[in-house]
């Protein structure tokens, strides 16, 4: 079979993504984001996001088809995020995908969003090794995965037990009056600060915690520690050194993420790590990971920033692999699964 031509749709959170992929070649990749509409709420409002998905779905599809100059009648499959994500948001993309599949009599593939964050790197860096690790960091997820087969065998060895890393960024940014989303603004502020100025806690790294939560994360205590430090400083009448707070907070996040990722690679004998999710664009996380991976002899792969945040290419890239392996398509009766486990690649 020649390289499959795949349409990918994504609508699990606040980005409406549509993409076309041929094999491992990205033909078109269009995203409509509702992030602006969530700024004043300091976080994604599910109903606002769902309404925006409905408005954006058809125009985004039109843009993707036009920019790839592809006739949808030629596609080999429609691939869509079936979960995890926000229920009201997921059903918009899923329903659109079903309509396309039914109208054109094409197979439908309901796929796992988290696995898409890993698979999308195929478009930038080609075939994945036999066995490798993945670190997914975004506003919605923080997970460590061992991947034996991107289309069928992934194991989540660790995840956050409370807030996602990106959520901690949002909360700390709000505390510092820096706006939303927190990732880019804190990263920028941290550039002028001293990462060693304040010793913020590293969650789940004590000997006792490591027994039960060796590869898990916790960012809720860190967020509270930053909040207390800032509040105490203000009560004492002092200026808050925003750059130092941002840099020290960011250091704590990057330190624990990279330390646990490297520990996973060592423990499971992995020599490649794929970094994915919106927070993968963070400069300190990339820098520290490169340093530590280099020392440990681990190769780090990371998709270009535009493919790290949520998009349709994730689904198309994963779908192309799923089709290439000859997995059976999904039924037209599938539903969206907000809590879809990472081990379920195809619904």
């Amino acid at each position: 079979m020649s390289e499959p031509l795949v349409l990918g749709l994504e609508s699990s959170c606040d980005e409406t993504g549509v993409a076309l992929v041929r094999g491992r070649e990205l033909l078109a990749h269009e995203v409509a984001s509702s992030v602006e509409q969530h700024v004043r709420f300091g976080g994604v409002v599910p109903e606002v996001a769902s309404r925006a998905h409905l408005q954006a779905m058809v125009p985004t599809l039109q843009r993707a088809c036009a920019s790839a100059d592809v006739d949808l009648a030629q596609i080999d499959g429609v691939c869509v995020t079936a979960g995890p994500g926000l229920m009201g948001a997921l059903v918009v993309g899923l329903s659109a995908a079903k309509a396309i599949a039914m109208a054109l009599d094409k197979p439908l593939y309901g796929l796992n969003h988290l696995v898409g964050h890993v698979a999308v790197d195929l478009l930038d860096h080609g075939a994945l090794p036999e066995r490798f690790g993945a670190l997914l960091v975004s506003g919605g997820h923080t997970s460590l995965l061992v991947v034996d087969d991107i289309t069928s065998a992934l194991t989540e060895v660790g995840a956050t037990i409370d807030d996602a890393a990106g959520e901690a960024y949002d909360k700390v940014a709000r505390l510092l009056g820096m706006g939303y989303p927190g990732g880019p603004v804190i990263d920028a502020a941290a550039a002028g600060g001293d990462p060693r100025a304040i010793a913020f806690p590293r969650g789940l790294t004590s000997a006792r915690d490591l027994e039960r939560h060796r590869f898990d994360f916790s960012f809720s205590g860190l967020k509270t520690a930053v909040s207390r430090w800032v509040e105490t400083r203000r009560l004492e009448g002092g200026d808050v050194p925003v750059a130092d707070v941002a840099a020290s907070f960011q250091e704590a996040v990057a330190d624990v993420l990279t330390a646990k990722a490297m520990d996973m690679c060592a423990h499971h004998g992995l020599d490649t790590l794929v970094l994915g999710g919106g927070v993968a664009a963070n400069s300190r996380l990339r820098g520290l990971l490169a340093e530590r991976a280099d020392a440990a002899g681990v190769t780090v792969r990371r998709p270009r920033p535009g493919l790290c945040t949520d998009n349709g290419a994730m689904m198309a890239a994963l779908g192309a692999e799923v089709i290439r392996r000859g997995h059976r398509p999904s039924s037209l009766e599938i539903g969206a699964t907000p809590g879809l486990p990472v081990g379920t690649v195809l619904v």
């Binding site: 769902s50 779905m57 599809l61 039109q62 229920m87 059903v91 918009v92 329903s95 309509a99 109208a103």
Partner: peptide
Amino acid sequence: PFTGLRVGVVTALTLGEVL
């Protein structure tokens, strides 16, 4: 109810576009 309502609307709009 919004979530169910959107299913019909996005399905109709997408079918209309594709067909």
